[in-house]
Design a protein around this nucleic acid. Structure first.
Length: 562
RNA sequence: GCGCCCGUAGCUCAGCUGGAUAGAGCAACGGCCUUCUAAGCCGUAGGUCGUACGUUCGAGUCGUACCGGGCGCGCCA
């Protein structure tokens, strides 16, 4: 129960009291909006309900507000003031004691504060990263990994049972190209050689791969090991080794990035199990296809697409979105009533196709299933200029390189700092800076600062007993402001999870850290007054806990010293 | 040409799903350390919210049309 919800409940009760006493014409109330005014003079909370009711009541908004305010006083004594302002807003100012009491409640929840108790087993699957095993992960995958992982943590914190899944496109043309490229490198063929395969992968990593293959290296990934045969004419053997090699490399980077998956799903398994063929047959059976030009077409225009799409090419092969549909049918059959796919926005056109294919199957899948969270492109800047070239991959900066240079904490924080819908400019210089300019350090520093105060207290022989804290001593503006921020954590987590906007957590943290720093600069914590010292330490301990758990939602550490 | 995303301070971005005087951080300028970490704080300056209509008590937020930028529009994945 958040403070905002409590206010909403009181307001609703006041409205009901009005109805009971026949003070209002209507008993149908609009959804009650309790907002936080931008201007502190307008109180802690405000509602516009009087303005919404005014027309129906044939009264002025202020007159409606007048009636309501009287009943609010009857419904609750939690408020210092309830005022009518502006065009008809009702502004609520809570008593300080309400905030102070709230701090105690927050503190008693400890590290679980802000989390919603899981109400049963609401299963959700989140698919993210899903990079092709044809090269190292790039910064775009990094953003996807950070956003996807944070979303998983947010959903987990809001009561969902989350399954994290990675889909490997390990079948099809691009893997064939990969094998050809490695084979070419094995034979000493360079990209400018006329014998170099068309659409071959040119990055340096292919050379490393070829070298590993020729020296019969063994790689382990996903629980099994593959040893290279070193035979350059065995393309199938090259393919198997190359995929295993690159998967392992991706695994290592993701592990370093602290991103884990519960399940790895291989596209190739959809072919070996017959799921792809089965899916096609079922769609044909439902009559949503036709043959033209030697190809089999899916009538996606029936499901909102702007043109129909080929499912089976005239050469007999399936196009890429057919296994996608089979894959999603598999997710549905596994009982995931809710599925979220986190992807780069450059793949947004697949949404209509996948959903259309699922509708064509006619197995009762809802129209908006699965949900999508798309992120826009990442641009990496260094020294004011865009960085494009990487040693390993050639054409793009890899996630591994970025982590090595700026560290996991800063990388993760920066990737989720912006709304996924916005393109992201990743400023390497800023991310590496150990100063106030760097938002990650700004937040982490607030945590470290609190830890240091506790250390100082211990060093000076002060024995801190949280049970004897007296919250009523916390009455300065800076303290009350901090408590209010602490109070808004649960709804921040809730809204970030519901709207798929992890950046709300970084905004929250930056704001809370700022309030902590302001407080620190205006008030001493360790003073001659043991009662006040204890009470302030009590508040700081709570702030540290909240910072740590909110950073934890982002997969960012909360250091005790910096 | 069509579809999706974006356009807010010089720069990077918020703006709580329609509220009151549009915010923060960089960059610029001026202050604050013999006392818990100055990796910090306080202050000044900076705006036609891309443009124009519309919806209503009320628009940065919703709608339409333009302008500008990105991405996608294959029997590639």
């Amino acid at each position: 129960m958040t403070v905002r919800n409590s206010v909403r409940d009181i307001l609703l009760e006041a409205l009901n009291l009005c109805s009971r006493d026949n003070l209002l014409l209507t008993a149908e109330f609009p959804p009650l909006i309790i907002e936080t005014p931008a201007n502190p003079e307008h109180g802690d909370f405000a509602t516009n309900v009087a303005m919404q009711l005014a027309k129906g009541e044939r009264k002025s908004p202020r007159a409606v507000a007048e009636i309501l305010v009287n009943k609010i006083a009857e419904a609750s004594n939690a408020f210092e003031r309830v005022e009518i302002a502006g065009p008809g807003f009702i502004n609520f100012t809570l008593k300080k004691s309400e905030w102070q009491t709230l701090l105690k409640e927050i503190a008693s929840s400890g590290s679980s504060y802000g989390r919603l108790e899981s109400s049963g087993s609401r299963k959700v699957q989140v698919e993210f990263v899903s990079a092709n095993p044809t090269g190292p992960l790039h910064v775009g995958h990094g953003r996807g990994a950070a956003i996807g992982d944070t979303l998983c943590r947010l959903l987990d914190a809001t009561g969902w049972d989350v399954t994290r899944e990675f889909y490997y496109n390990d079948a099809g043309q691009q893997i064939y190209n990969l094998a050809l490229s490695v084979q070419a490198r094995c034979l000493g063929i360079e990209p400018d050689d006329p014998r170099w395969p068309a659409d071959g992968y040119q990055g340096e990593y292919i050379k490393d791969l070829a070298k590993a293959y020729l020296s019969s290296e063994t790689v382990e990934t996903d629980g099994h090991s593959v040893t290279a045969s070193a035979n350059s004419s065995d393309l199938e053997s090259i393919r198997i080794f190359a995929v295993a090699y690159l998967r392992r490399e991706q695994d290592i980077v993701l592990k370093a990035f602290d991103v884990r998956f519960d399940n790895y799903f291989l596209e190739s398994s959809l072919y070996t199990s017959g799921a792809v063929q089965d899916t096609v047959d079922r769609i044909i059976g439902k009559g949503h296809t036709y043959e033209e030009g030697g190809a089999l077409w899916l009538r996606t225009t029936s499901f909102g697409d702007d043109k129909d799409r080929v499912m089976r090419k005239s050469d007999g092969g399936f196009t890429y979105f057919v296994p996608d549909i089979a894959y999603h049918l598999d997710k549905w059959n596994r009982g995931f009533v809710r599925v979220v796919n986190e992807q780069g926005a450059d793949h947004h056109s697949t949404i209509t196709r996948v959903r259309g294919g699922l509708q064509a199957l006619d197995v009762g899948i809802p129209l908006g299933w699965p949900e999508y969270l798309l992120h826009q492109m990442v641009t990496v800047m260094r020294g004011g200029e865009e960085v494009k070239i990487s040693k390993r991959a050639g054409g793009y900066v890899t996630l591994g390189e970025l982590i090595d240079e700026v560290g996991v904490d800063a990388t993760r924080y920066f990737f989720v700092m912006r709304k996924p819908d916005s393109q992201l400019v990743f400023d390497i210089d800023l991310a590496k800076q150990h100063s106030t300019d760097n938002p990650v350090y700004y937040v982490q520093y607030a945590h470290a600062r609190i830890c240091r105060i506790f250390e100082s207290a211990a060093e000076s022989g002060f024995s801190y007993d949280p049970a004897s804290a007296r919250v009523e001593l916390l009455e300065t503006d800076e303290e009350i402001r901090i408590i209010k921020s602490l109070a808004s954590l649960p709804e921040t987590i809730q809204s970030a999870a519901e709207s798929f906007e992890p950046h709300r957590i970084t905004s929250y943290l930056h704001n809370l850290a700022g309030e902590l720093h302001s407080f620190y600069n205006c008030h001493r914590v360790l003073s001659d007054d043991p009662g006040l010292t204890t009470s302030r330490l009590f508040m700081l301990a709570t702030v540290a806990t909240v910072i740590k758990s909110a950073l934890g939602l982002l997969g960012v550490s909360a250091p005790e010293r910096m």
